[in-house]
Amino acid sequence: MKKYPLLLLLLFSGLLLTGLAFANRNGVYRTYEQNRKAEPVLSVLFLGASDGVFPWSEEETKALPVMAEQETVRETESESAVPQTEETALLETEEEKEPARYDFVPVDQTYLDDALFIGDSRTQGLLEYGRLQENATFYCKTSLTIYDLFRHPKQFIREDEKKKTLEQALSEHHFGKIYLMLGINELGTGTAEYFFREYAAAVNKIRELQPDAIIFVQAILHVAPQKDETDPIFNNANIEERNEKIKTLENGRDIFYLDANEVLCDENGALQSDWTYDQVHLKAQYYSLWRDFLLEHGICIPSDPDSGASDFT
């Protein structure tokens, strides 16, 4: 030990960690195992640690499966506390009312004074470079997913030096419009159906917490051609599959679908390659196009909805 302390320390700690990983391979690390083929046994310990999963963790506290493995997804689905009926119930009740439907109209920036944006790093980019900070509120965070909103609530909102979950923040404030864009980080997790169920449930919950708000569900922005052609997961076909589902939430009355890809993509429907460095995020100067698109697509609901209803065909 005296002669070769580092060698022995590394050796013993390595063996210990390998032993721990091996012993728990069918326990807390079960879902990480599929990922392990090419890597050392002990790597699952570190993968787990970054999700807050440790050898002494209870199995139920496991984070979402990281791989799009059908089996694990099914498992999570069955655990799902949001029954399918909830989302369909939302849509059905909306349909029963059959009130007026509204058209998009151009609006100015003050329209967004009572707006809230919820999203991942792309929405963060809109906050930083869309020149909307003085109007709208932004609850966004890099790598935010739909699951972080209510399923495994994350405290990603910081207000008055306090960290809050979306539910807490929405209970304390009142918003007139809520813009939601989430879904790219979820591409590697679960099926499109599972994603959509969670998405619809989240919209439902937001509606519950903010009954007067107009909700804009935004299409997930596409990726640029190079990524689209090479990435087995983060490609536009996968994004579109989910957008199609998100679109079905639109009811023309208080939930609207906005697809900014119309102004940000090339003729093949991929994000303009000159407008991005990493194939995923817009460069700063192009966020204004997204903002302008939003301002072209305002919804104005008169205080008495029946009197000002416009045709929506």
């Binding site: 580092l6 002990l42 990281v66 991942d120 980080n185 997790t189």
Partner: peptide, 28 residues
């Protein structure tokens, strides 16, 4: 030597999470 051991495992933590999980580096 003890510090080096700790640093080594911190590096492994970073390494495993950066390279082995394609969805962790793809944080958008």
């Amino acid at each position: 030597v003890i510090a080096l051991t700790v640093v080594f495992w911190v590096c492994v933590y970073q390494m495993v999470n950066m390279t082995e999980n394609p969805f962790l580096y793809a944080n958008f």
